[in-house]
């Protein structure tokens, strides 16, 4: 840990002229380590990519082949029309559930996080602890209760029910992250905005939200990915195959005796792609450290 933390300070410095000699070599070693580590962690993707381009007989061949002997890019077209699952509908379900769940979780979490970060009240700790406790509950255990509830409300087997479930199961996390980001902004900044004549809404929009923007981006990424990958609740609560998200659709390709591994890997890659693109689009918000400029 000490070796890690010793290096931390220079990361927050402004760019310095590169040191010659030892420092330079260290930098290159870090680059090499970075690339090697990244490749090791990326290896399963290479396997998925290669596997998704093999024919069904070849992927079940013993001993396994490293590269496909015949390339089958048409796997990516054929997987949308299989008897196993309606993949187009599955993709749409995943998108709707993830967007809805993320939006709802953020809308419910922001006011709660702001209020608990700014105000001291008697029920603050009980409230935050209660929120934390909900994190321990899980769809697999609560599924039977949720199912009965949705039947009563007439919401069973709908995408909206899964939006609610995803928002609720990610709320705790969103509240705690945003709580810590709101607490990181000194009260004085907000009070200065009020003194300058901002209303509460204005100070929230023009001062607070820009300052906690990295937190919001972090929360959105975390929540969206969690919704995107949710499996157990959808499996139990969405019996209609056109409502099921991609994660549940994946299981249809794996049978006890006969598995379509090429489609498992193809669908996995399709499912991973949007999230990676989303991340690379907003990566600069994560690293910008927008709070750094505000707290002077």
């Amino acid at each position: 840990m000490t070796t890690l933390t010793e290096r931390l300070p220079s990361t927050v410095d402004a760019p310095r002229p590169p040191k010659r000699g030892r420092g330079q070599r260290k930098r290159w070693e870090l680059t090499a380590v970075g690339v090697i580590v990244a490749l090791v962690f990326l290896f399963p993707y290479i396997v998925m990519l290669i596997g998704s381009l093999k024919s069904r007989p070849e992927i079940l061949q013993v001993p396994p082949t490293y590269l496909p002997q015949e390339w089958h890019p048409e796997n990516y077209v054929n997987m949308w029309n299989t008897p196993e699952t309606p993949l187009g509908s599955n993709l749409l379900s995943t998108v709707v559930i993830s967007l809805g769940g993320t939006a709802l979780a953020l809308l419910a979490a922001l006011p709660a996080a702001y209020f608990t970060a700014r105000h001291n009240f008697r029920l603050k700790m009980p409230f935050l602890l209660l929120v934390l406790i909900t994190q321990m509950l899980q769809p697999t255990v609560l599924a039977s209760g949720l199912f009965r509830e949705f039947v009563t409300l007439g919401l069973n087997d709908t995408l909206f029910s899964m939006i609610l479930v995803n928002a609720a199961f990610n709320l705790s996390f969103a509240v705690w992250i945003m709580h810590s980001f709101f607490r990181g902004v000194p009260k004085e900044i907000e009070e200065a905005a009020w003194l300058d004549g901002c209303t509460r809404t204005q100070s929230m929009r023009r001062v607070m939200l820009p300052l906690v923007w990295p937190g919001i981006v972090t929360t959105v990424i975390f929540t969206f990915i969690a919704c995107w990958n949710e499996f157990a609740a959808s499996l139990i609560l969405l019996p209609t195959d056109t409502n099921q998200p991609l994660t549940v659709a994946l299981t249809k390709f794996v049978g006890q005796y006969d598995s379509a591994w090429q489609y498992v890997f193809g669908v996995s890659l399709i499912g991973i792609l949007p999230v990676v693109i989303l991340f690379s689009m907003i990566e600069k918000h994560l690293v910008a450290g927008l709070t750094a400029g505000g707290v002077k």
């Binding site: 290096r7 220079s10 990361t11 930098r27 870090l30 680059t31 970075g34 690339v35 580590v37 990244a38 490749l39 962690f41 990326l42 399963p44 993707y45 998925m48 990915i225 995107w228 990958n229 499996f231 991609l246 994660t247 994946l250 299981t251 498992v264 669908v267 996995s268 499912g271 991973i272 999230v275 990676v276 991340f279 690379s280 990566e283």
Partner: peptide, 24 residues
């Protein structure tokens, strides 16, 4: 500490692993 390209690769690996459904 890393340069932009290895850093980007690291984040790609991280987000890729993270984005992968537990199932996949």
């Amino acid at each position: 500490r890393a340069r932009p390209i290895p850093r980007m690769l690291l984040f790609l690996a991280a987000l890729g692993a993270w984005a992968t459904p537990a199932m996949a």
